[in-house]
Simulated assay, not measured.
Amino acid sequence: MDPIAYVNGAFVPLSEAKVSVLDRGFLFADGIYEVAAVLDGKLVDSAPHLARLERSVGEIGLALPESLARIEELQKELVARNHLDQGMVYLQVTRGADTSRDFPFPKGDVKPTLVMFVTAKNIVDAPSAKSGIAVITVPDIRWERRDIKSVALLAQVLAKQAAAAAGAAEAWMVEDGHVTEGGSSSAFILTKDDVIVTRPNSNAILPGCTRKAVVKLAEERQLKVEERLFTVDEALAAKEAFITSASSFVQPVVSIDGKTIGDGKPGPVATRLREIYVDFARTTAV
């Protein structure tokens, strides 16, 4: 059965979903995207994702073609039309199609392009959550506004490809000796003193929605959390390491650059935080 996508006001079969070759998202990566998890047919942590979408488009002067409330309605309808129980909804908005192909913003009546589609994925019972994942480190070669969820993802593509070639599931990007974040995730470590460490939000990283929720959930349970920079060497010496993202929730990291973290198995803190987040996702999804 052909999945259903949403393109500029219409629900269409995914195989028939098309945008213009003149779209500025295609020509200039002039656009923003979001990915929201779906669990039990409901959107997980929807409000933070929509708030981040609004912030990102605002940072590049791009007007949303629909209200945030309407976008959420469309996402829910898309989930329902696809009978999606578990997976993700991908949303992308660009500045639209302009015949001039000029770098400055187009003048005149150019409408933004809004597309959405879904992907089925078993997030909760993913085998990697039980086995843990391997991570490699790569230089962070991205631009200086990583807090904007831009569709310009070539640096992340190269990082993730390097990870795949090395048999790893994720790449941690490194700048000035410090880990910034994963190619599509936020990075955490647990120190020998049982302190959860993750890099503070700034223009150096994307403000992860799952990261934000996990930090709050950890603090509510009296776990000590420090938002600060950490080095690769500190990560290698950590008791545990893990990543967070909308597409994986909380995933334990058991090796970095081929070196074992802890005892090489998912640690109790990462495992517990995953359980806590899954429960949070189920009880708060809309």
Rank of each mutant, 00 (worst) to 15 (best):
A166D: 15
A159W: 06
V138H: 01
K130L: 07
V151H: 01
A165H: 02
S186I: 13
P127F: 11
G132A: 10
E175D: 05
K121I: 00
I133Q: 05
M173R: 08
R146C: 04
A164P: 15
K192Q: 14
G167C: 08
A134I: 09
L190M: 13
A155M: 04
I136E: 15
A165I: 06
D193M: 07
I133Y: 11
K130F: 10
A134L: 07
Q161H: 07
M173N: 06
V179Y: 15
I148T: 09
T137Q: 06
I123Q: 01
I123L: 02
L153E: 03
N122E: 00
I189V: 14
S184E: 10
S186V: 12
A166R: 01
K149D: 08
S131R: 09
G183D: 07
T137G: 07
A129C: 11
M173K: 00
R145Q: 09
V124Y: 04
I133S: 14
V195F: 13
P139M: 10
I141Q: 14
K192T: 12
M173I: 04
A152G: 15
E144L: 15
V151F: 06
G177H: 13
L190I: 04
A155Q: 08
K192Y: 15
W143L: 03
L190R: 07
S184G: 01
G132V: 07
L153V: 13
A164L: 14
A168S: 08
A126P: 11
A155F: 06
S128D: 11
S131N: 10
A120E: 12
T137H: 02
K160L: 13
M173D: 05
K130N: 09
A152S: 14
G132Q: 00
M173F: 05
D147Q: 07
E181G: 01
I189Y: 09
V174G: 00
G182D: 14
I123G: 03
A129S: 12
A152R: 13
V157H: 02
T180N: 13
N122F: 02
A187K: 12
E175L: 01
G182Q: 05
A155P: 11
K160N: 14
L190Y: 12
V157Y: 01
A165G: 07
L158C: 00
R145H: 12
D147M: 10
L190K: 00
D140A: 15
G132P: 09
G182L: 07
A163E: 14
E144Y: 14
A162C: 02
A165Q: 10
K149M: 11
I189S: 10
A162K: 08
A169E: 04
T191K: 11
A155C: 06
A155T: 04
V197Q: 02
T137I: 07
A126L: 03
G167Y: 05
K121D: 05
L154Q: 12
W143F: 15
G182P: 06
P139H: 12
E170V: 14
A169K: 06
A163Y: 02
Q161C: 09
V195H: 15
L153G: 01
